[in-house]
Simulated scan of single mutants.
Amino acid sequence: MAEHPALDDSVALWSAPAAERAGRPLLILLHGYGADEHDLFGLVPYLPPQFVVAALRAPLAPPFPAPGYSWYPIEGLDGRDATHVTDAASLVVDWIDAVSADSPVGLLGFSQGAAVALQAMRLQPERFAFAVNLSGYATPGALPGDAALAIRRPPVFWGRGTHDDVIPSFLVEHTVMWLPEHADLSGRLYQGLTHSVSEPELDDVRIFLDKQLEHIASDSKT
């Protein structure tokens, strides 16, 4: 069984220094398998500048010779074990709670990071304002927070490619059924896109995030 050490706060990348973060919404970036915190941080110029963006590093090292880091194992007898996804999401929640007590928080993940983002929302349905799921999936199995999440229905953007052959089809099929029941779902299937992110998808993500900023601003006035 894989162990999940605490997230290394010293390697987190921030779009703004500590003195400029107070009172601003926080967007957490969760990279995919074999990558690191630098991978999605390159998206910062494409994201609304109102967000303070933090890119985290996953806690596990994939088996040699795979590079980078992973949130949970996808190989071996316990590969894609739902408990490992939940453990990783718990670490993300703990890290966020330590750095942001009051600010609205959104999650943006790619592949494994997207699965962890959705799992974090299930752990704390009231904690997160929205999630962006890029080439990821919802983890099968029930969690105690699912009923509350289905009532709250936070906004979720799901983007994936027609030529993505990395995520198993049964996980895509599960997500197609699960997400509309638990979230205010928007998104798009991108023709010809593989297991990656395209410029049209980033344009759609930007539109989605701009809408979330409007909702956050509206909620702050009520």
Rank of each mutant, 00 (worst) to 15 (best):
R127F: 02
I74C: 09
G68I: 07
W71Y: 07
V53D: 01
A120K: 02
P73W: 00
P73E: 12
R127M: 00
S103A: 15
S103F: 03
A101F: 12
A131Y: 04
G76Q: 12
V44R: 10
G79W: 12
L107H: 02
S90K: 14
L77V: 06
A138R: 00
G106D: 03
Y137T: 04
F110E: 08
R122G: 04
E75N: 13
A88P: 02
L77D: 15
G141K: 02
A98C: 11
R57M: 09
Q124W: 03
S111R: 10
G161T: 13
L60M: 13
G159Q: 07
L107E: 02
V99C: 11
I74Y: 01
D78A: 14
V44M: 04
W95V: 03
V166H: 09
A129P: 04
L134A: 10
T83L: 07
F110R: 01
G68P: 05
L47T: 13
I151S: 01
D36P: 12
L143N: 05
F128S: 05
W158T: 00
R57S: 13
T139A: 13
W158H: 08
E75G: 12
A138W: 02
G109E: 09
P154G: 00
A55E: 10
S103H: 11
A101R: 15
F64Y: 15
G68R: 08
T139K: 08
V166Q: 10
L91A: 01
A147C: 03
A66R: 09
Q119S: 14
L91C: 08
Y137G: 02
A35I: 09
H38L: 10
A61T: 15
Y69L: 07
A66Q: 11
A142M: 11
A138P: 03
D78Q: 14
A89Y: 00
D165N: 14
I151E: 05
D97M: 11
G159H: 07
R122V: 00
V156P: 02
T139S: 14
R80S: 10
M121F: 04
D102S: 14
F157H: 10
V85P: 01
V99A: 04
A120G: 02
I96D: 11
